[in-house]
Amino acid sequence: MLKYLFAAFLISICLIVGKALAHYIGFFPGSIYGMLLFAAILASNIFDEAAIGAAIAKIINIMPLVFLPVCVGVIQYGDLLQTSGWKIVAVGMSSTLSVMALVAFICAKILRDERCD
């Protein structure tokens, strides 16, 4: 339980600092600054990553829950989905497959020459 509380505390601090940075610097949303700060803190070894790692992994596992209420908001766009739903699916599928093909093709060529242990 303490691990979860500590992870929540650390995340909250990063978010508060991130929001302050977003307010003064702008450019990114505060949560993105918070995410980068959180990664930097973990990398700096100030805290024992093993202590909070398992707790954060579990939090990330159930994270889709926090998107549920906003996703339900799609019922407000019934008209749009009826008229343009197939177009949105067409855009999504074509860009996903194109990006996938392009990245795989180029990276296969680059990574073949790159040394990797």
């Binding site: 995340i11 909250s12 990063c14 978010l15 505060g30 980068l36 959180f38 990330i60 994270m63």
Partner: peptide
């Protein structure tokens, strides 16, 4: 309200 903390938690897989 937990969406923003959720984004911050993504710092872990990044790390």
């Amino acid at each position: 309200a937990f969406i923003e903390p959720g984004v911050v938690a993504l710092g872990y897989p990044l790390y």
